[in-house]
């Protein structure tokens, strides 16, 4: 269980995963925030109001998968670094794109090869960096997108440069 180990189990992950038909349409966010903590920057970060908190700031964020465009504006705003963007509609067969916040140095460069790690920090595979966004407005939280095997999209959650 997440609360004992810090590792989200596949069972715990289910409610925040977009349905298959939404995944096929292109980029969408996965918000891995499973605890009622007082925090809401993701709500105001979303330009299309796809993130809601029903009963106030300590509620968990609810993402409307259909409204979400996968733009990634929420990713660097999350203080818990808990938001990921998955893009299953990638033009390389068998591959998908995964975007995440990255706050370690060095920040990788586009096309660099990095280690893709799972939720326990274990090596999964080598992955190519497809994009790095790190503007001043992100205040030193880079958003790194890597190309990963499509069938490992829910396992990979970190990188080692």
């Amino acid at each position: 269980m997440l609360k004992n180990t810090g590792i989200i189990t596949s069972e715990e992950l289910k409610p925040v995963l977009p349905p298959q038909n939404r995944l096929e349409k292109g980029p969408v966010a996965i918000i891995e925030c499973l605890q009622d903590i007082p925090c809401d920057p993701c709500v105001s970060a979303c330009p299309v109001k796809a993130i809601q908190m029903q009963s106030g700031i300590t509620d968990r964020p609810q993402l409307d998968f259909e409204t979400c465009t996968g733009c990634g504006a929420c990713v660097p705003k999350c203080p818990g670094l808990a938001i990921f963007i998955v893009n299953m509609k990638h033009n390389v067969p068998g591959k998908a794109l995964l975007s995440m916040s990255y706050e370690l140095l060095p920040v990788p460069a586009k096309d660099q090869e990095v280690d893709a790690l799972d939720r326990t920090g274990k090596f999964v595979c080598k992955a190519k960096v497809a994009r790095v966004i790190n503007p001043p407005a992100y205040d030193r939280t880079a958003v790194v997108t890597i190309e990963v095997p499509a069938d490992r999209i829910n396992d990979i959650r970190s990188i080692k440069v």
Partner: peptide, 8 residues
């Protein structure tokens, strides 16, 4: 916790 866990 997840943040440090996934860094190993």
């Amino acid at each position: 916790a997840s943040k440090i866990r996934r860094l190993g």
